[in-house]
Design a protein around this nucleic acid. Structure first.
Length: 233
DNA sequence: AATGTCCCCAACCGCGGAAGG
DNA sequence: CCCTTCCGCGGTTGGGGACAT
């Protein structure tokens, strides 16, 4: 009880910022819980980490969002749902908190989305360990689970997730429409689809990480319709 | 000028996973 | 294994500035 009370809450002062900056300059980032003991700063580790990541870090870009940044966020949100850290990772200089706030306060209005704070079904990790993030994600997975033959079609020995095969299977299961969207005729898109698919699919190993850092990702995104979601496939 | 309301965003909270002892 | 600590994530809150009355 007393331990919690000894930490200050609320907005940071310039003096507190200076102490935190000095600490990171000397010791580097990490071990946030030690800062209070070493510097006397009356802030808990979580608060220090957040302050550094969202404000003090030299990589953080200040100021309003550009048209290009907004466009990128909208496209990424269509693809990834409320995975703000993933989205922020593709928007240089922006933190997940910045992206989330900007989405909830500006982009929802811009796009005419009501109840921006309403939870997306399946977003919470608590509801399912497989990390569903959108309605359409859970629908997709339900479809996958109900498709007995899918496992044998996809998980053949020695095949490192054959993307073309993956697309064929998805088409055959009506998970995407052949020849009618940007995804079907674009190799890069197929790559992305496969990665996203792999992330969601219970058929793939849990530790299989889609690589959003892949070559040509931004170029691929440029050709991605703003309103394209899994549901529209 | 005073008061009320709205809006933005920095910061907090609760939770889960990973790592280490 | 079990427990503790640390880290990171997404949802939520509330302080304070901007604007309206």
């Amino acid at each position: 009880m007393e331990v919690e009370n000894r930490y200050k809450k609320g907005l940071w002062t310039e003096e507190e910022d200076r102490i935190l900056l000095d600490y990171v300059r000397v010791h580097g980032r990490g071990k946030w819980n030690r800062i209070s003991k070493m510097t006397g700063l009356q802030r808990c580790g979580k608060s220090c980490r957040l302050r550094w990541l969202n404000y003090l870090s030299p990589t953080v870009k200040r100021g309003g969002f550009s048209e290009e940044e907004e466009d990128l966020i909208i496209r990424l949100h269509n693809l990834l749902g409320n995975r703000w850290s993933l989205i922020a990772g593709r928007v240089p200089g922006r933190t997940d908190n910045q992206v989330k706030n900007h989405w909830n306060t500006h982009l929802c209005k811009k796009l005419g989305i009501k109840n921006p704070n309403k939870k997306v079904v399946g977003t919470s990790k608590k509801t399912h360990p497989a990390l569903f993030h959108r309605v359409e994600d859970s629908q997709l997975i339900q479809t996958l689970h109900s498709t007995d033959s899918l496992d044998s079609k996809l998980c053949h020995d020695g095949d490192d997730h054959d993307h073309t095969k993956l697309m064929e299977v998805m088409e055959s299961e009506n998970l995407c429409t052949p020849g009618t969207d940007a995804l079907s005729n674009n190799g890069e898109s197929q790559w992305m689809m496969s990665k996203h698919f792999a992330e969601l699919s219970p058929l793939f190993p849990v530790d299989y990480q889609p690589n959003l850092e892949g070559p040509g990702f931004l170029e691929f995104l440029d050709g991605f319709p703003l309103d394209l979601t899994w549901q529209s496939l």
